[in-house]
Design a protein around this nucleic acid. Sequence first.
DNA 1: AAACATACAGTCAGAATTGTATGTTTGTAT
DNA 2: ATACAAACATACAATTCTGACTGTATGTTT
Lengths: 203, 203
Amino acid sequence: MATAIRRTQQERASAMRHRLLEATLDCLVDHGYAGTSTTRVVERAGVTRGAQVHHFPTKAALVAAAIRHLADKRAEQAFAELDRIKKAPDPVDSALDLMWDLHQGPVFHATVELWVAARTDPELHGHLSMVEPATTASVVEVAKTLFPDHAERQAFAHWVYTCMDTIRGILLTSFVFDDPAPKLAARWHRAKAHLRILYTTLI
Amino acid sequence: MATAIRRTQQERASAMRHRLLEATLDCLVDHGYAGTSTTRVVERAGVTRGAQVHHFPTKAALVAAAIRHLADKRAEQAFAELDRIKKAPDPVDSALDLMWDLHQGPVFHATVELWVAARTDPELHGHLSMVEPATTASVVEVAKTLFPDHAERQAFAHWVYTCMDTIRGILLTSFVFDDPAPKLAARWHRAKAHLRILYTTLI
DNA sequence: AAACATACAGTCAGAATTGTATGTTTGTAT
DNA sequence: ATACAAACATACAATTCTGACTGTATGTTT
């Protein structure tokens, strides 16, 4: 018998909430928003319905919390990547790759699921439109940190927006690629060249 | 009593199929892929389960047919728009607006629903990866028709791809906008300027 | 017009999902 | 130590979805 470690109520509760939220994001990534049933979430978290319903009385509450959790993760991830690339030889190239990396992986997949679902779900839309501007802004913030000289120029912010849009478009299109990895890389290679040209022209 | 018009079996069948497929696309637009249940589709089409199951024995068959139907509509739409803008004063601007328009409206919303769902649904993915290259290619075809001089240059095709990616990224982001219309217009205005610069630099 | 095939209608059963209600364990305060 | 509250578990009810099944109407062939 494992001697149960004694934890305070707060520790237990917050650990459980974390497990449930992470499981929710995992489900979003693996099964999409529609496939993210509370049943699957609790299964994935390895707990029971009771735990879920105790912390998040309704599914909407669970999703709402997951949205904030995801926003936190995205912002955190942005600043984490920042440190990694801060003093790179080619700052433009690094900045672009940084943005690209921020849109790869499970975190952004979960985000897209929520975005698309929000188009036809007013409640979701409400929650997302609260946190999304801040999250996108944090990407711009990171970009400005990399280019303090241009931080104030509006054209620079616009350039960052276009970069994000292009990246997101590529990602979206990639969902129907047969063999995503190589096509994705090629498409990004070309798009990055375009965005670099834009940078030198604009800035 | 309305004197029932006498129609051949083929006429009846193809009319019914069309109704069901259009209803399916309507549901995709209004309720998303997850909200597109066969129940809702037949309700929307104003027919009964019997009709649906007769023509499309399973839901997967219905969706598969809807995918082809949608691809046809998209290609058709592309060439229809083409005629409208063929002899415009500013060809680059027109071409960009053409691409933009092709990605507005219900047709593309339905497409996005399918794309995103395909990420986590292998069967959907299979169907889409069959028709999608052709659909995207038709956009490039239209662009080449507008610019016969550069039709052969690879850089031109790459530019078109980047334009599509950027447009799609904007659209995706717009799903979480609070008041989409004005923000969309502004974002497109800026992005279009960028894409025009890119054109003059590249081509 | 009789026989047949196709098109369509309506009902039913099983599975899945969400929310509720009740029971049990674990920490906390006195 | 004991009472109490929070955390977690389990069982159940109502709804919704899909596919199967049976029945009826309409068109086609001979």
